[in-house]
């Protein structure tokens, strides 16, 4: 067991724990936007940890796992951004505790240029 192996197992462990917490967050949060918050952040770090951890455990796979990790780190925020925008456009309002905390209301139809 070398240092790399220990580091790899530690990263995979942290990764799967965050994957679980992300899924739990998606289950527990009250509306779409909060679900996206929990889901995107926790599953991104979870997937990065798991994939790079396997890359360290199996050094000859490292470059390909690195490419998968970079792809996930770039694509996950983009898809969550698209989902948040789409949800707002079909009329799902975010839950807020006070009334005037939705700065996006009223401007969401302004940018129809594309």
């Amino acid at each position: 067991m070398s240092v790399l192996t220990y580091l790899g197992y530690a990263m995979v462990t942290v990764g799967v724990i965050f994957l679980f917490l992300g899924a739990l967050g998606i289950f527990r949060m009250p509306d779409v936007y909060n679900r996206l918050q929990a889901g995107t952040k926790a599953t991104t770090l979870g997937a990065l940890g798991t994939i790079l951890g396997v890359g360290l455990l199996q050094p000859e796979w490292f470059w390909k796992t690195l490419i998968i990790a970079i792809f996930i780190a770039i694509s996950n925020p983009i898809s969550s951004h698209a989902l948040a925008r789409g949800s707002y456009k079909i009329g799902i309002k975010p839950i807020t505790k006070e009334d005037d905390m939705d700065a996006y209301a009223g401007v969401e139809t302004e940018n129809e240029e594309e």
């Binding site: 799967v16 994957l19 779409v32 889901g39 991104t44 396997v54 996930i72």
Partner: peptide
């Protein structure tokens, strides 16, 4: 519908990590 798509999105991320594992 968007709740379901959010769940689907994170399911695919979990599956990607799971396949590497």
């Amino acid at each position: 519908a968007s709740d379901r798509i959010v769940a689907l999105d994170s399911l695919t991320t979990i599956t990607t990590a799971g396949l590497v594992l």
